[in-house]
Amino acid sequence: MLRTGFKKWVLAASLAMTGVAAAGGAHAQAATSPATAATAAPTGLRPADSNQGTSGGALQKADAAPAAPALAMDGAPALNATASAPGVGQPLDGVMHIQPQVTKNGLRAHWFHDRILFPLITFISVLVLVLLVVVMVRFRAARNPVPSRTSHNTAIEVAWTLIPVLILVAIAVPSIGLLQAQFKPAPAGAVTLKAIGNQWFWSYQYPDHGGIEITANMLKEGNQVAPGERARSAADGPRLLATDNRVVLPVGVPIRLITTANDVIHSWAVPAFWIKLDAIPGRLNETSFTIDKPGLYFGQCSELCGARHAFMPIAVEAVTPEQFAAWVRAKGGTMPAPGKASDAVIPQPGADNSAAVMDEAAVANAMTGPTENGTDTPTTSPQGATGNPGGVGEAGR
């Protein structure tokens, strides 16, 4: 009895001391000065939003609304992915259809799919299903114990020859026209965009606008970033599609797209533009398109290129020509003369006049002296970057 009573007194005293300590700690925390509070939580950081999937109260940079600095980078308008029209420029859950198209070739291809290909596919599928049912019911062994010995039927043979030919013609005529339109050379005054695939990120050059260069990496989720590093928000775009730097292109102006790669084959694809162009090392592929509507459009690398193939998103801001010119000036570039044909030198990676080869030659010249004909190799690239920070990519991740 005495020992039990002593235990009760000790337990009560412990509980009382714990309560006093807790109250004292709460009072001390409430009385903490602003300077102390600033020390406890780094300045400019805040807990990540719940919609970013952050666990453990991770901290990220506190930005003004919208919370993604990339939405208004260097003079580009603040395009918010959540404010875009539903289903335009990005995929939607549960939707099994082609994205709304914003280029003339895309609209033409969409019409081709809905008015010619889909009806033909439906007709052929239904016809084959009906024929299979008829054969299984009418010509089964129970109804035909003695098989027919018919070997020729002129009408059927003519039909199954002509009908496929007509189907192929119906597909080929609009298909060839669409293919021709997709690879029609860009007119004078087009904006040249060179997209370079890397393992595993995209880099871009604007050779007609003062050699602007940017690098685009995928934005990580809130639970994948280090403290102080910006994570993807809903305003940046969907998961696996948002980038830290976006390509900016003008609306209503022809775009001359040139693709290449530095390592393996990649593919630059944006569904809303009806564009999928392979990026091949040592080769320049080219196509052209014109964006009809301003907005934010997403795509991905569509060629299996290695372990992080799924982490090479593409984000394009389509803006008015005036906004595009302001962005070019903010990036340190220059606008070409209106209607002037592109005269920029666009070397292939590994070519004799590419930037990497010229740099190697410059180092060799510096070590061994001038070349035999007395001319030095240029030490600067014709497409050198301006002072715009673009990042170095995630080559090792």
Rank of each mutant, 00 (worst) to 15 (best):
Q205K: 11
L178Y: 08
A226I: 03
Q323Y: 13
K61W: 00
A385W: 07
L71R: 06
I116E: 00
A172S: 15
A85K: 12
T379C: 05
P227D: 12
R138C: 14
G350K: 00
A337N: 02
A170Y: 03
F123V: 11
T259Q: 10
D376P: 04
S354V: 09
S233C: 07
I196L: 03
R138S: 11
N223G: 08
A85N: 14
T150I: 03
T161K: 01
A72S: 09
W9P: 00
G222N: 02
M367Q: 15
W9G: 07
V191Y: 03
T260Y: 04
A12E: 01
A23K: 03
T375A: 13
V126L: 08
A190F: 02
A310I: 11
E360P: 07
P69L: 01
N144Y: 00
L117P: 00
A341M: 04
Q224M: 11
G384N: 05
D49P: 02
G197E: 06
A81K: 10
M367I: 11
P378Y: 07
S50A: 12
L92R: 01
D63L: 06
G106S: 06
N353S: 15
T377M: 04
M73H: 13
L131S: 08
I121Q: 06
F289N: 10
G75T: 01
Y297E: 02
H113S: 15
Q60R: 09
A242Y: 15
S125M: 09
A337D: 06
D208A: 14
P370F: 02
M96E: 08
G228M: 01
P119E: 07
R46F: 00
A355T: 10
T103N: 14
